[in-house]
């Protein structure tokens, strides 16, 4: 289900909880950002952030056998705001960490880069536990890229 306002400054997409649909979510977010005058670097950041957040949501639901749709809301008012809602509390059970995997020590093959990437790219990133036990991830991205420290 897709809802778009007339001037494409906000969109709301509900999509089935399956990896196949994540490309649609990031394509839509990228289109709204481009329409809002965000440059190529920031559009790429937004696409990456949306993809990482949606991937976490879909994986968390699949791991718990939850089939509820994922909700993506994008809003642009000079700053790009995103909200992604799933039906699990995966961000609050301690299974996700902001620490980068130790690749030299043999970690990283099975993931672990997503949340650290999000923390380093988003200008603001928050996680909220919903009343129904689900998670809402919100982040915002300014038009100008802040200096990002490589690890």
């Amino acid at each position: 289900m897709l809802a778009v306002n007339g001037d494409l400054t906000s969109v709301r997409l509900q999509f089935p909880s399956h990896p196949r649909h994540i490309s649609l979510a990031r394509m839509l977010a990228g289109a709204v950002a481009e329409q809002g005058g965000f440059g190529p670097e920031r559009v790429a950041d937004i696409r990456l952030l949306v993809s990482e957040a949606c991937t976490n949501a879909v994986r968390a639901q699949q791991a718990r056998g939850v089939v509820s749709p994922i909700t993506l809301v994008c809003r642009e008012d000079g700053v790009f705001h995103v909200e992604i809602v799933d039906a699990t509390g995966a961000f609050f059970d301690g299974s996700m960490t902001d620490v980068l995997p130790d690749v030299v020590g043999g970690q990283g093959e099975n993931g672990g880069f997503g949340l650290p990437l999000m923390h380093r790219i988003a200008d603001r990133l928050s996680f909220f536990e919903n009343a129904d036990g689900g998670t809402t991830v919100t982040f915002s991205v300014r038009k100008e890229s802040s200096s990002i420290q490589s690890s």
Partner: peptide
Amino acid sequence: FLDSTGLGVLVGAMK
């Protein structure tokens, strides 16, 4: 486009 899942695949190849 490349996200963290892709990075994991490349790390696996390197391993």
